[in-house]
């Protein structure tokens, strides 16, 4: 295969030009509706008591934090495309101008890990909302817990939480982390989370809006 950029280019000019040529790719979300919301995960609506392997549907109510969007309940329940499947139990408005999150993979399948990174891609650009990733819990305002409880990560989770300065938020991301999903148990228990971001895995739209709302936006 012969692939060339073209004669006469200096590479620094090439990359500068590439940055300009593409133009602005960031969507206006969460200040405007999502441009391409996924069908799943999204808010499910329906009726009846279809079989649900994670008991997300009980007594005619749908629990977003338990749902893994396996389609077992369809067509009784159908996805609506609405991305507002998160719950904020506590907000920290002091973090509005600078919100650093530390991600902790307690026992995730990898899908949540990728979706959390995706919010920093050009379509979403979480940095414009003053949301950043930090590599150390000592610099973190919130810990984002992904995956189920595993014995090997229990101590790492405890140490990371204790190393964080106050005020600090505990954010649960994905069905595994919130309720154990289809695989196991929640790493710290659902009642202890300040923010629940539902989905299996949650879509970048849901993650972005939930993080923004955690600061009281």
């Amino acid at each position: 295969m012969d692939i060339r950029v073209g004669g006469g280019y200096s590479m620094s000019n090439f990359w500068f030009g590439e940055g300009i040529r593409k133009g602005k790719k960031t969507e206006r979300f969460p200040f405007a509706p999502p441009e391409e919301p996924p069908e799943r995960p999204s808010r499910m609506e329906g009726s009846g008591e279809p079989y649900c392997p994670t008991q997300a549907i009980k007594d005619g109510k749908w629990d977003a934090g338990r749902c893994i969007f396996c389609r077992f309940c369809e067509p009784g329940y159908t996805p609506t495309g609405k991305q507002d499947i998160f719950k904020v139990n506590r907000t920290e408005p002091v973090l509005k101008k600078s919100f650093y999150i530390y991600k902790l993979d307690s026992g995730a399948c990898g899908a949540c890990n990728v979706e959390l990174e995706t919010i920093f891609d050009p379509q979403y650009d979480a940095n414009r909302l003053n949301i950043f990733i930090t590599n150390s819990p000592r610099h973190a305002d919130a810990i984002v817990v992904m995956g189920v409880h595993t014995d090997g990560m229990k101590e790492a989770l405890k140490n990371a939480y204790e190393a964080m300065p106050e005020p600090k938020l505990i954010i649960s991301m994905g069905a595994c982390s919130i309720s154990g999903g289809i695989i196991g148990e929640s790493p710290i228990g659902r009642e202890k989370y300040h923010v629940e971001i539902a989905g299996c895995p949650p879509s970048p739209y849901t993650i972005l809006e939930a993080l923004a709302r955690a600061r009281g936006d």
Binding site: Y102, D105, G110, N113, N135
Partner: peptide
């Protein structure tokens, strides 16, 4: 590791 910013997974 197991938990650090430079790694995607634990």
């Amino acid at each position: 590791g197991p938990s650090t910013g430079g790694l995607m997974e634990s």
